[in-house]
């Protein structure tokens, strides 16, 4: 039984005079896979950044609750895993070094067993000691998934999760999404039909333009 919930209340975001979305409401309090969809420029990435606490909303609020208690803004990052094409990890470090240093900065124990499981799942175990700058963009995208999943977050936010990935990589992502969706909340922001087919419910951002 999931004890995490995500709720948006009267969410509004504008950049200057340009309205991105207005009076956005949703509540996800059951484990599952949820989608955020809309045409290019509709604000999918903006919304996931607001949910992750990276940028603020112009009006309204996002509530992250654990056991019915609201999580303080400065602790939200401990409950979230985030993957996006614009997320960049440290290229001067190896995959293993990156994951270890992120665990240390986050203040959680480096779970070697889980990291090795994820490295195998995303088929990069053999390259774990190579510098990230030697990786292809698809391999970097796989490392981002491990970065997002290594601390077992209750909310997994995936912004265009299958970009840069080959078929093998996409299958790994879909398997992980289904696996995580059984016990946690998975949020997918995408336009890809295959990505959205995994979702139990989808928020269409074009409905919130007025």
């Amino acid at each position: 039984m999931i004890n995490y919930s995500l709720e948006a209340s009267g969410l509004n975001k504008s950049f200057g005079r340009r309205l991105i979305f207005n009076d956005l409401q949703f509540k996800f309090d059951k484990s599952g896979v949820y989608g955020i969809s809309g045409p290019n420029g509709s604000g999918k990435s903006t919304l996931v950044k607001i949910i992750a606490g990276i940028i603020g909303a112009s009006q309204g609020k996002i509530f992250h609750k654990l056991d019915e208690k609201e999580i303080a803004e400065e602790h939200i990052h401990n409950h979230i895993g985030f993957v996006s094409p614009y997320l960049v990890l440290y290229e001067e470090f190896t995959t293993y070094e990156n994951l270890k240093l992120f665990a240390d900065i986050r203040g959680v124990k480096f779970n070697q067993e889980r990291v090795d499981y994820l490295l195998n799942k995303f088929l990069i175990f053999k390259r774990k000691d190579d510098l990230l700058k030697t990786y292809s963009s698809g391999m970097k995208q796989r490392v981002k998934f491990i970065f997002a999943l290594m601390h077992s977050p209750q909310l997994l936010i995936l912004d265009e999760p299958t970009s840069n990935l080959d078929d093998e990589g996409k299958n790994s992502v879909y398997e992980i999404v289904k696996e995580e969706g059984q016990k946690n909340i998975v949020l997918i922001a995408s336009n890809e039909k295959n990505d959205l087919e995994l979702c139990d419910d989808t928020v269409y951002l074009e409905k919130y333009k007025n």
């Binding site: 606490g53 985030f82 960049v88 440290y90």
Partner: peptide, 14 residues
């Protein structure tokens, strides 16, 4: 380098 987002995702501002 574009790594600001990664830091925002793992640590509190302080």
């Amino acid at each position: 380098r574009g790594t600001t987002l990664a830091l925002q995702l793992v640590a509190a501002p302080t």
